[in-house]
Write a protein that binds this DNA or RNA. Structure first.
Lengths: 208, 208, 208, 208
DNA sequence: GCGTAACCGAGACGGTACGTCGGGTCTTCCG
DNA sequence: CGGAAGACCCGACGTACCGTCTCGGTTACGC
């Protein structure tokens, strides 16, 4: 991903220049690469527009021109990872949810930079009004996409037609968020089947 | 809570002084009051040690002396609200969970400053390693306290003795966090009974 | 000198902005003006980068960008006064030295801000290693310039060719420094002719 | 001098206590020792009341009680060195002045801590009004003492009775100050005889 | 012989200033 | 017109000392 900019740190490299009155894709790539690298090296705390600009050998205004907020930039970094987004149909709701929670959420965040990026975006959204909007929009879009899992279950007849898909997916996503933000992604991955089980069938042995 | 310091903004008020080689409670109160006020007026974005110091008419070093991080200060502000912490025994696990989620978590965060403070703490923990430790410690302590709800249900015979209380409480807390961090506390409050229902009894009509 | 910035204290004045990727002369002028004003009002003790920045409506980093030390800034203030630096040729070594000591050193320092600035620079150089270097460099440069007085005397035939100009000028400068740093510039001015006389002809009536 | 407090850095040493309603000489000694040590280790820049108090294991008020200014403290440190203050009578004014400048001033300042202390005092006097008074008083007292050199020369018949002793001594002291404050004490020591020669007999070969 | 006054250490207090970092804006110059 | 470069103002960061104050304890002196 960032392999196409091997000499970024070389200050003697011939600078990118304007390519006329239009967006220079090389600059955008370099900036995203730099953002990624900065996040990897310095973590969330070390992430700043200044640092990205330095690293990308770009001017700050160039970044601000195309990304209004740090958040927008982070989300773009995040999205570069999120290309294989189709949820595989495992044939059952339980399987789909286990895969969704274990692979698509926790597994995706675990280890890689993605978890860090997403944590940063969420954190930013608490501080900045604009960031919150961006995050909410992204979240809504992903939710709308993810309820397909429940829709598939409906068409299979596993759940009634009036099942509240958002609530179920919401519970799963909530669990993932919670563990991500507490830095407990790894521990959470072991519990995935039990979590899905509780959501689907309730507390085992509950007599209410 | 902060009503006992009515003249804080009066610059002519006789300044607080040292009361010897020990912590001055008046200063600590004033700082917490100021932190609260700053959060109320400026939100998370406007919260800074400088602003708190100015407002409290205190020196920055006095703040840093007693609170190593912004997070520690925020958590102390948060804790001042959290005095009535006993969970009322409603007589049933369902009732207890509804009360816990609806009153103790969402209800507590809703409207008041608490939600803002907690959001800020969570956000800070994403950025700062030390803050994360502080938040995790607090979270663990609250979790340990909250599983009492499930323990009570066990003694009532509502759930088996080997029920994983942490998982159940964890799901409830996760849901609350998620909604808090998305700024959807109010919307979430309506769904409380249905959320509890799903956690206790699973997806209605699920045939797995 | 600072008369061209009459409204500096008006906070409603439109702020200076960047004029591109190069030093903004207006800012530099404003900072020097402010430094001068701060020194005038608060004396050496009141002189701080913070105060200058406040007064100049400039950011501290802008000052630190261009002047690494307080000393460098003070020396620049000092130099703004030192434009008419030619020593008038009075036709005799005695006359030149009297003029040098009385007009160029003591007279220049007397009353005006210059004495204060120079005292500050010297004081700073005692504390700060970097400041000492800056002061020494300036001092060497001035000394090299001032020995011209003796050189002229040599070409006039007043003194032998092997006369140690530095020693003579050094004695004169030493006397001025001493009186400046003791706050006795005014008293010293009366003694100028006698001091020069002793340096040139020795202690009157000495039989050694 | 400071050898009588060998365990100063041992924190387990039993602390000094009050010895009743009077000054504790042990504390005063410890503070002067500490001041000396701090100056030796950190130079002028590292000298602060805090540092001295820490080092002396004394309370800041104890220092402020007995020395109103940093300057007063420094001067006391300085004076501890200045016990052998008698000027040896070398039998001639030239010899006395060479000894005074070379041994009593430059030689005394050279290498040892004294030069540092005196530089600090002079620097402080530029900033602080009170310090200036203290320094002036000390300077006047030393001057009054030093003119004895010229008085002796008068009684020897080397110079006329109306010779301005202060001016001559002043020139010598000025030269020493100048070199001290420029950090050129060592270089200056070589020039001592020539400086005295010029002061006594004027510029060699001058025909005015 | 007992209160009290002054000293001692310790360290917190409100402050000021330090020097640095980053934010977001602006302008110039080059292609 | 895009893009780099970098200066601009601003504000917050966390630290070091400042000089003052109050404390609890200790000792010597005067009543």
């Amino acid at each position: 991903m960032s392999t196409d900019s091997p000499n970024r740190q070389d200050p003697e490299e011939t600078a990118r220049r304007s390519i006329g009155a239009r967006r220079n894709p090389a600059s955008q790539e370099a900036i995203l690469d730099a953002a990624e690298a900065v996040l990897e090296e310095g973590g969330i705390a070390g992430f700043s527009i200044e640092a990205v600009a330095r690293r990308a050998r770009a001017g700050k205004p160039t970044i601000y021109r195309w990304w209004p907020h740090r958040t927008a930039l982070m989300l773009d970094v995040y999205k570069r990872f999120k290309n294989a987004k189709a949820f595989p149909d495992t044939g059952s709701l339980r399987g789909d949810l286990v895969s969704f929670l274990g692979d698509h959420l926790l597994g995706f965040w675990h280890g890689s930079l993605c978890g860090t990026v997403y944590r940063a975006v969420v954190a930013e959204a608490q501080t900045d009004q604009e960031a919150a909007k961006v995050l909410n929009a992204y979240h809504d879009e992903r939710m709308a996409h993810s309820v397909q899992i429940v829709d598939r279950a409906k068409s299979r007849g596993e759940v009634p037609q009036d099942t509240d898909g958002e609530l179920i997916i919401g519970l799963v996503v909530s669990y993932a968020w919670h563990k991500l933000l507490l830095g407990q992604v790894e521990e959470a991955m072991e519990k995935v089947p039990r979590v899905v089980e509780v959501i689907l069938k309730g507390v085992p042995g509950y007599r209410g």
